[in-house]
Structures are given as C-alpha cells and as structure tokens.
C-alpha cells in the first residue's frame, strides 16, 4: 500500500517542484506547465533513442522548450504572461499532435525496476532543487515574486531571471510527464488535463502545512504527499469520485480561507494563492 502511494507521489515530484518555482516563488500564472507536461512526454516517447538517460534528458529538453517559448513571448514579445501561456499551450498541443501522429502512442516496457528509476530521478531532482533554492538564482525567483521592479533598480537582468525560472519549472514538468507515461505504458494527448489544478492544490496544501514565507523544498514535497494521501484516502473510503473536482476546489478554497484567517500571521497573498 505504501509502495503504491509512494510510487504515485514520486511520479509527480518533479512537476510539483517545477510548479513551486513558477507558481509559488515567481508568482506567475504559468499555465504552460500543462503543455510542458504533455510535450515532454511526447517528445521523449517519440525520440528515436530510448536507451539510458537519453529519454529523461529529452523530456527535460521538451519541457524547457515550452518554458522558453512562453517566457520569451512574455519578456521579449511583451505579451502578458497568462496570454503567453495560453498561446504556448495551443501551439504545443498542435506540435504534440504532429509528433504523435495518432491519438495514443505505446511505450516499450522498461527493463529495470520502475520504482528504482523513480527513486533515483526524484532524489536527483530534489537535490538539484534544494541547492537551486539556496542559490542566487533561487533567491532571485523569490524576489521576482515579491517585487518584480527590484531587478531594474539594481541592474539585474529580469529577463534572465524570468526566462531561467520558467525554463527550469517547465523542464521539470516535462520530465514528470515522461515519468507518468513510462509508468502507464502509453502517451496520449489528454495526459495534461487537470495538471494545473493538481499543482495548485498540492502547493496550497504544502503551504498550509509548512507555514513559512521562505523558499523551502519542504513545501512542494509536503504538498505532493498530502495531495496523494488525501486522494488515496478518498478512494479507499468510498467517496464518490464524480465529485472529486468539486472537492478539490472546495479544499483549495477552505485552505486559503484558513491561511488568511489570522491577519497577524497572514502569509503573503498573491493572485493564485499558492
């Protein structure tokens, strides 16, 4: 039971960490995570070489391309980020369709233990995330979410910070998409549906549990664990999953209200509440 729950959590660790960078730290409406998740999976699954670490690197690259597109549309094209993300989603949905060639694409089975692969990938991702959060760039991402004008005042390139942050976030989403498809044996065009709500719910839960304004890797880890423990619990107790989406929305709403209840301990409000 614990292993299957852990298995599911490990599939989404890179995604939630990526969402933490863009949605939580930078506070940008990074809806392109959805197409990064899809495109990372599609690009990697359809890449000719499927040996060794190549597919994982290709998945990261696929997600990075999506992040680069949305961030460049915003920073160089001067398109508001929400619109840039929506346009990017449309664009990469079409590209994914072209690459797949059909609605569903089967992946060949992995030769090594899947759980082992997930553990290794998650540990590497978490270690990289941990050191990145403590680095100059990690702090810059958080500063951007706090005061985007800071960079102009101090002659720091805000273009570099935004593009760098979004590329990292989306590349992690792409990796997560590939892990999900590897685990399920196929990739199709609908795997990205519901990803943003999953990210927001997990981050809100993480924030509610780890009540801090500082950037910490504990927040996304706790959030993703809490999300899947809760989901698993609901399934086990016979909760009618027809209402799962509504339950998710109510959960996010309730958590946000609780977070803001005590004014003196209010965590900084932002447009997404994450």
């Amino acid at each position: 039971m614990i292993e299957s729950l852990l298995h599911q959590i490990l599939l989404y660790v890179p995604l939630i960490l990526g969402a933490y960078f863009s949605l939580s730290l930078m506070k940008v409406p990074d809806l392109s995570l959805e197409s990064a998740y899809l495109f990372g999976a599609v690009f990697s699954a359809t890449f000719p070489c499927q040996q060794g670490v190549t597919p994982f690197l290709i998945a990261l690259l696929g997600g990075a391309v999506v992040g680069l597109t949305s961030s460049m549309l915003n920073k160089i094209g001067n398109i508001p980020f929400l619109l840039a993300a929506i346009l990017t989603n449309g664009l990469f949905h079409g590209i994914s369709q072209i690459l797949l060639g059909k609605a569903m694409f089967s992946l060949s089975a992995t030769t090594q233990s899947e759980f082992f692969i997930l553990c290794v990938v998650s540990i590497v991702v978490l270690l990289v995330g941990f050191f990145l959060l403590k680095s100059h760039l990690g702090y810059s991402l958080a500063i951007y979410g706090n005061n985007p004008h800071f960079f102009k005042q101090h002659a720091v390139s805000d273009r570099y910070v935004v593009i760098g942050g979004i590329v990292i976030a989306n590349s992690l989403a792409g990796l997560s998409g590939y892990l999900f498809c590897l685990s399920n044996g196929f990739v199709d065009l609908t795997i990205g549906f519901g990803i943003i709500l999953l990210c927001i719910t997990a981050l809100v839960l993480g924030r509610a549990i780890v009540r801090t304004n500082k950037q910490t890797i504990l927040c996304p880890i706790t959030g993703v664990c809490a999300y899947f423990v809760l989901q698993d619990f609901l399934v086990r107790t016979g909760f009618s999953l027809k209402y799962f989406n509504a339950f998710q929305a109510l959960l996010v709403l309730g958590t946000l209200i609780l977070l803001r209840k005590k004014q003196s301990q209010t965590l900084l409000a932002d447009h997404l509440g994450v």
Partner: peptide
C-alpha cells in the same frame, strides 16, 4: 470514473489493485 483525468485514473487503478 476518472473524470477525464489520467492522474485520477491511475489512483483508481491502484485502488482496484489493492
């Protein structure tokens, strides 16, 4: 019912397995 959500479908299959 996975409600069009592959993540939820995966959770449900895990539950069916158990």
């Amino acid at each position: 019912n996975a409600l069009g959500n592959k993540t939820l479908m995966r959770t449900e299959i895990e539950e069916i397995g158990r």
